[in-house]
Protein backbone atom coordinates (compact mmCIF):
# COMPACT_ATOMS: atom_id res chain seq x y z
CA UNK A 1 0.00 0.00 0.00
CA UNK A 2 1.36 3.41 -0.88
CA UNK A 3 1.93 6.06 1.68
CA UNK A 4 -0.71 8.16 -0.03
CA UNK A 5 -3.36 5.49 0.16
CA UNK A 6 -2.50 5.08 3.80
CA UNK A 7 -2.82 8.79 4.33
CA UNK A 8 -6.33 8.77 2.92
CA UNK A 9 -7.47 6.06 5.25
CA UNK A 10 -5.72 7.26 8.34
CA UNK A 11 -6.01 10.92 7.45
CA UNK A 12 -8.62 12.25 9.84
CA UNK A 13 -7.14 10.60 12.92
CA UNK A 14 -3.65 11.78 12.14
CA UNK A 15 -5.00 15.22 11.65
CA UNK A 16 -6.72 15.20 14.97
CA UNK A 17 -3.48 14.15 16.63
CA UNK A 18 -1.61 16.84 14.84
CA UNK A 19 -4.05 19.43 16.04
CA UNK A 20 -3.65 18.33 19.60
CA UNK A 21 0.09 18.46 19.27
CA UNK A 22 -0.06 21.92 17.84
CA UNK A 23 -2.21 23.23 20.63
CA UNK A 24 -0.98 26.70 21.44
CA UNK A 25 -2.11 29.64 23.52
CA UNK A 26 -5.68 30.59 22.59
CA UNK A 27 -4.88 33.96 20.98
CA UNK A 28 -3.00 32.50 18.07
CA UNK A 29 -5.71 30.19 16.71
CA UNK A 30 -8.08 33.15 16.99
CA UNK A 31 -5.76 35.27 14.93
CA UNK A 32 -5.12 32.61 12.34
CA UNK A 33 -8.80 31.75 12.18
CA UNK A 34 -9.60 35.37 11.50
CA UNK A 35 -6.91 35.55 8.85
CA UNK A 36 -8.23 32.42 7.12
CA UNK A 37 -11.77 33.77 7.25
CA UNK A 38 -10.65 37.01 5.60
CA UNK A 39 -8.79 35.11 2.91
CA UNK A 40 -11.81 32.91 2.23
CA UNK A 41 -14.09 35.93 1.88
CA UNK A 42 -11.59 37.66 -0.40
CA UNK A 43 -11.23 34.57 -2.57
CA UNK A 44 -15.00 34.24 -2.80
CA UNK A 45 -15.79 37.94 -3.29
CA UNK A 46 -16.04 37.87 -7.10
CA UNK A 47 -18.37 34.87 -6.98
CA UNK A 48 -20.55 36.33 -4.26
CA UNK A 49 -20.83 39.58 -6.18
CA UNK A 50 -21.69 37.76 -9.40
CA UNK A 51 -24.23 35.56 -7.65
CA UNK A 52 -25.90 38.68 -6.26
CA UNK A 53 -25.87 40.36 -9.67
CA UNK A 54 -27.49 37.48 -11.50
CA UNK A 55 -30.23 36.97 -8.94
CA UNK A 56 -31.26 40.63 -9.02
CA UNK A 57 -33.98 41.88 -11.37
CA UNK A 58 -32.24 42.95 -14.60
CA UNK A 59 -32.97 46.68 -14.22
CA UNK A 60 -30.95 46.94 -11.01
CA UNK A 61 -28.51 44.07 -11.58
CA UNK A 62 -25.53 46.33 -12.15
CA UNK A 63 -26.86 49.53 -10.63
CA UNK A 64 -24.39 52.08 -9.34
CA UNK A 65 -24.34 52.45 -6.38
CA UNK A 66 -25.25 48.80 -5.94
CA UNK A 67 -28.74 47.82 -4.85
CA UNK A 68 -28.59 45.38 -1.96
CA UNK A 69 -32.22 45.00 -0.98
CA UNK A 70 -34.03 43.12 -3.70
CA UNK A 71 -36.28 40.16 -4.35
CA UNK A 72 -34.07 37.37 -5.68
CA UNK A 73 -35.03 35.79 -8.99
CA UNK A 74 -33.71 32.80 -10.90
CA UNK A 75 -34.88 34.20 -14.23
CA UNK A 76 -31.35 34.54 -15.61
CA UNK A 77 -30.77 30.84 -15.00
CA UNK A 78 -34.07 29.87 -16.60
CA UNK A 79 -33.34 32.06 -19.62
CA UNK A 80 -29.85 30.69 -19.91
CA UNK A 81 -31.09 27.13 -19.88
CA UNK A 82 -34.03 27.65 -22.20
CA UNK A 83 -32.88 30.23 -24.73
CA UNK A 84 -29.27 29.24 -25.35
CA UNK A 85 -27.52 26.01 -26.13
CA UNK A 86 -25.72 26.15 -22.79
CA UNK A 87 -26.57 22.50 -22.30
CA UNK A 88 -24.79 21.57 -25.49
CA UNK A 89 -21.69 23.57 -24.53
CA UNK A 90 -21.65 21.89 -21.15
CA UNK A 91 -21.79 18.49 -22.84
CA UNK A 92 -18.99 19.51 -25.22
CA UNK A 93 -16.85 20.75 -22.37
CA UNK A 94 -17.48 17.55 -20.44
CA UNK A 95 -16.64 15.31 -23.40
CA UNK A 96 -13.45 17.20 -24.15
CA UNK A 97 -12.34 17.33 -20.51
CA UNK A 98 -13.08 13.70 -19.69
CA UNK A 99 -11.84 12.37 -23.02
CA UNK A 100 -8.60 14.29 -23.04
CA UNK A 101 -7.95 13.37 -19.40
CA UNK A 102 -8.36 9.65 -20.02
CA UNK A 103 -6.23 9.68 -23.15
CA UNK A 104 -3.57 11.82 -21.49
CA UNK A 105 -3.35 9.31 -18.65
CA UNK A 106 -3.32 6.22 -20.86
CA UNK A 107 -0.49 7.67 -22.91
CA UNK A 108 1.28 9.43 -20.07
CA UNK A 109 1.38 6.63 -17.50
CA UNK A 110 3.69 4.22 -19.36
CA UNK A 111 5.94 7.06 -20.44
CA UNK A 112 6.16 8.46 -16.92
CA UNK A 113 6.91 4.97 -15.63
CA UNK A 114 9.72 4.49 -18.11
CA UNK A 115 11.17 7.91 -17.32
CA UNK A 116 11.14 7.09 -13.62
CA UNK A 117 12.64 3.63 -13.92
CA UNK A 118 15.29 4.32 -16.54
CA UNK A 119 17.09 7.51 -15.61
CA UNK A 120 19.89 8.72 -17.82
CA UNK A 121 20.61 11.27 -20.49
CA UNK A 122 17.76 10.25 -22.76
CA UNK A 123 15.22 10.58 -19.98
CA UNK A 124 16.70 13.83 -18.74
CA UNK A 125 16.56 15.36 -22.19
CA UNK A 126 13.00 14.18 -22.71
CA UNK A 127 11.98 15.70 -19.39
CA UNK A 128 13.60 19.00 -20.24
CA UNK A 129 11.93 19.01 -23.63
CA UNK A 130 8.65 18.43 -21.84
CA UNK A 131 9.41 21.46 -19.69
CA UNK A 132 10.04 23.51 -22.81
CA UNK A 133 6.81 22.30 -24.41
CA UNK A 134 4.90 23.18 -21.26
CA UNK A 135 6.16 26.73 -21.45
CA UNK A 136 5.25 27.42 -25.08
CA UNK A 137 3.06 30.46 -25.71
CA UNK A 138 -0.44 29.23 -26.49
CA UNK A 139 -0.59 31.19 -29.73
CA UNK A 140 2.50 29.42 -30.99
CA UNK A 141 0.81 26.07 -30.48
CA UNK A 142 -2.75 26.77 -31.42
CA UNK A 143 -2.42 28.71 -34.66
CA UNK A 144 -0.48 26.00 -36.48
CA UNK A 145 -2.92 23.49 -35.02
CA UNK A 146 -5.74 25.46 -36.59
CA UNK A 147 -4.15 25.05 -39.98
CA UNK A 148 -3.47 21.38 -39.36
CA UNK A 149 -7.02 20.67 -38.24
CA UNK A 150 -8.40 22.38 -41.34
CA UNK A 151 -6.18 20.29 -43.57
CA UNK A 152 -7.23 17.10 -41.81
CA UNK A 153 -10.88 18.11 -42.00
CA UNK A 154 -11.36 17.84 -38.24
CA UNK A 155 -11.70 21.54 -37.50
CA UNK A 156 -14.52 22.39 -35.09
CA UNK A 157 -14.82 18.89 -33.61
CA UNK A 158 -14.50 17.84 -29.99
CA UNK A 159 -12.01 15.29 -31.26
CA UNK A 160 -9.58 17.90 -32.56
CA UNK A 161 -9.97 20.00 -29.43
CA UNK A 162 -9.46 16.98 -27.19
CA UNK A 163 -6.38 15.87 -29.13
CA UNK A 164 -4.88 19.34 -28.89
CA UNK A 165 -5.44 19.39 -25.14
CA UNK A 166 -3.91 15.93 -24.71
CA UNK A 167 -0.75 17.20 -26.37
CA UNK A 168 -0.73 20.52 -24.55
CA UNK A 169 -1.18 18.85 -21.16
CA UNK A 170 1.06 15.86 -21.82
CA UNK A 171 4.23 17.50 -20.43
CA UNK A 172 2.60 18.38 -17.12
CA UNK A 173 1.10 14.92 -16.79
CA UNK A 174 4.32 12.99 -17.43
CA UNK A 175 6.24 15.25 -15.04
CA UNK A 176 3.74 14.78 -12.27
CA UNK A 177 3.28 11.04 -12.83
CA UNK A 178 7.02 10.44 -13.08
CA UNK A 179 7.45 11.95 -9.65
CA UNK A 180 4.89 9.53 -8.26
CA UNK A 181 6.58 6.53 -9.85
CA UNK A 182 9.97 7.58 -8.52
CA UNK A 183 8.62 7.26 -4.99
CA UNK A 184 7.32 3.75 -5.58
CA UNK A 185 10.03 1.23 -4.61
CA UNK A 186 11.49 -0.63 -7.55
CA UNK A 187 11.35 -3.88 -5.58
CA UNK A 188 7.64 -4.01 -6.29
CA UNK A 189 8.29 -4.31 -10.03
CA UNK A 190 10.89 -6.95 -9.44
CA UNK A 191 8.68 -8.99 -7.12
CA UNK A 192 5.87 -8.94 -9.67
CA UNK A 193 8.17 -9.99 -12.46
CA UNK A 194 9.63 -12.86 -10.42
CA UNK A 195 6.05 -14.07 -10.03
CA UNK A 196 5.96 -14.47 -13.79
CA UNK A 197 4.59 -11.16 -14.98
CA UNK A 198 6.15 -9.45 -17.97
CA UNK A 199 7.08 -5.82 -17.36
CA UNK A 200 3.94 -4.65 -19.12
CA UNK A 201 1.79 -7.02 -17.08
CA UNK A 202 3.50 -5.88 -13.91
CA UNK A 203 2.77 -2.28 -14.81
CA UNK A 204 -0.85 -2.93 -15.63
CA UNK A 205 -1.77 -5.39 -12.89
CA UNK A 206 0.38 -4.38 -9.96
CA UNK A 207 1.98 -0.98 -10.23
CA UNK A 208 -0.78 1.13 -11.73
CA UNK A 209 -3.38 -0.08 -9.22
CA UNK A 210 -1.03 1.00 -6.44
CA UNK A 211 -0.74 4.45 -7.96
CA UNK A 212 -4.42 5.24 -7.41
CA UNK A 213 -4.17 8.60 -5.63
CA UNK A 214 -1.31 9.75 -7.86
CA UNK A 215 -3.25 8.97 -11.00
CA UNK A 216 -6.28 10.66 -9.56
CA UNK A 217 -4.26 13.76 -8.77
CA UNK A 218 -2.84 13.94 -12.27
CA UNK A 219 -6.28 13.24 -13.69
CA UNK A 220 -7.86 16.02 -11.66
CA UNK A 221 -5.30 18.51 -12.93
CA UNK A 222 -5.74 17.38 -16.54
CA UNK A 223 -9.49 17.66 -16.17
CA UNK A 224 -9.31 21.15 -14.71
CA UNK A 225 -6.89 22.38 -17.35
CA UNK A 226 -9.15 21.10 -20.11
CA UNK A 227 -12.27 22.42 -18.39
CA UNK A 228 -11.06 25.99 -18.14
CA UNK A 229 -9.09 26.31 -21.37
CA UNK A 230 -10.06 29.34 -23.42
CA UNK A 231 -7.61 30.15 -26.19
CA UNK A 232 -7.46 26.63 -27.65
CA UNK A 233 -11.21 26.25 -28.21
CA UNK A 234 -11.37 29.88 -29.35
CA UNK A 235 -9.20 29.05 -32.33
CA UNK A 236 -10.06 25.39 -32.88
CA UNK A 237 -13.85 25.54 -32.74
CA UNK A 238 -16.57 27.49 -34.53
CA UNK A 239 -20.09 26.19 -34.03
CA UNK A 240 -20.26 22.51 -33.22
CA UNK A 241 -17.62 22.06 -30.54
CA UNK A 242 -17.92 25.32 -28.57
CA UNK A 243 -17.16 25.03 -24.87
CA UNK A 244 -18.64 26.82 -21.87
CA UNK A 245 -15.74 29.24 -21.21
CA UNK A 246 -15.93 30.33 -24.84
CA UNK A 247 -19.70 30.74 -24.65
CA UNK A 248 -19.44 32.88 -21.54
CA UNK A 249 -16.82 35.08 -23.15
CA UNK A 250 -19.03 35.68 -26.20
CA UNK A 251 -21.99 36.69 -24.01
CA UNK A 252 -20.00 39.46 -22.35
CA UNK A 253 -20.22 42.92 -23.86
CA UNK A 254 -23.64 42.26 -25.35
CA UNK A 255 -27.04 43.22 -24.05
CA UNK A 256 -27.84 43.47 -20.37
CA UNK A 257 -29.94 40.27 -20.21
CA UNK A 258 -27.18 38.37 -21.99
CA UNK A 259 -24.63 39.71 -19.56
CA UNK A 260 -26.74 38.43 -16.71
CA UNK A 261 -27.00 35.06 -18.43
CA UNK A 262 -23.24 35.00 -18.79
CA UNK A 263 -23.00 35.58 -15.05
CA UNK A 264 -25.50 32.80 -14.49
CA UNK A 265 -23.44 30.49 -16.71
CA UNK A 266 -20.32 31.38 -14.75
CA UNK A 267 -22.12 30.60 -11.49
CA UNK A 268 -23.35 27.25 -12.80
CA UNK A 269 -19.87 26.39 -14.02
CA UNK A 270 -18.51 27.42 -10.63
CA UNK A 271 -21.12 25.29 -8.90
CA UNK A 272 -20.06 22.22 -10.84
CA UNK A 273 -16.43 22.95 -10.20
CA UNK A 274 -17.04 23.57 -6.49
CA UNK A 275 -18.67 20.16 -6.22
CA UNK A 276 -15.71 18.72 -8.02
CA UNK A 277 -13.22 20.64 -5.88
CA UNK A 278 -14.79 19.43 -2.65
CA UNK A 279 -14.68 15.84 -3.79
CA UNK A 280 -11.22 16.13 -5.27
CA UNK A 281 -9.36 18.18 -2.69
CA UNK A 282 -8.68 15.32 -0.30
CA UNK A 283 -7.21 13.15 -3.04
CA UNK A 284 -5.31 16.08 -4.47
CA UNK A 285 -3.45 16.74 -1.25
CA UNK A 286 -2.91 13.08 -0.50
CA UNK A 287 -1.59 12.46 -3.98
CA UNK A 288 0.54 15.57 -4.16
CA UNK A 289 2.35 14.99 -0.90
CA UNK A 290 3.55 11.80 -2.48
CA UNK A 291 4.46 13.12 -5.85
CA UNK A 292 5.00 16.53 -7.26
CA UNK A 293 8.31 18.31 -7.37
CA UNK A 294 10.53 16.32 -5.09
Amino acid sequence: MTAAAEAIIKGPRQLREKRRRNARPKAQPMMSGLFLAIVCVAMLAPFIWTLLSVTKPTDVAFANPPVLAYEPTAQAFVDLWQTTNFYQYLINTGIVAVGSTIVALVIGLPAAYALARAPGYVSAILLILALVFRSLPRFAVVLPMYELSRQLGIHDTTFALGAALVAINQPFSIWLLRNFFVKLPEQIDEAAMIDGCSRFQALRRVIIPMMGPGILTAGVFMFLFAFQEYLTPLILTDTKAQTVPLFIATQLGQTLPMLQQAGAAAILLTGLVVLFAFIAQKYLVAGLSDGAGK
Binding site: R150, H155, D156, D238, T239, G253
Partner: peptide
Protein backbone atom coordinates in the same frame (compact mmCIF):
# COMPACT_ATOMS: atom_id res chain seq x y z
CA UNK B 1 -24.29 30.10 -32.43
CA UNK B 2 -23.97 33.22 -30.29
CA UNK B 3 -20.84 35.21 -30.91
CA UNK B 4 -19.71 38.69 -29.93
CA UNK B 5 -18.52 41.31 -32.37
CA UNK B 6 -14.81 40.63 -31.85
CA UNK B 7 -15.55 36.93 -32.33
CA UNK B 8 -17.36 37.64 -35.59
CA UNK B 9 -14.41 39.67 -36.85
CA UNK B 10 -11.96 36.91 -35.93
CA UNK B 11 -14.10 34.15 -37.44
CA UNK B 12 -14.79 36.06 -40.63
CA UNK B 13 -11.05 36.18 -41.21
CA UNK B 14 -10.49 32.49 -40.48
CA UNK B 15 -13.51 31.10 -42.30
CA UNK B 16 -12.68 33.07 -45.44
CA UNK B 17 -9.01 32.13 -45.36
CA UNK B 18 -8.99 28.59 -46.69
CA UNK B 19 -10.43 26.61 -49.58
CA UNK B 20 -13.27 25.64 -47.28
CA UNK B 21 -14.78 27.44 -44.34
CA UNK B 22 -17.25 26.81 -41.58
Amino acid sequence: EPVDFAGQVQRTTTTLAGAEGT
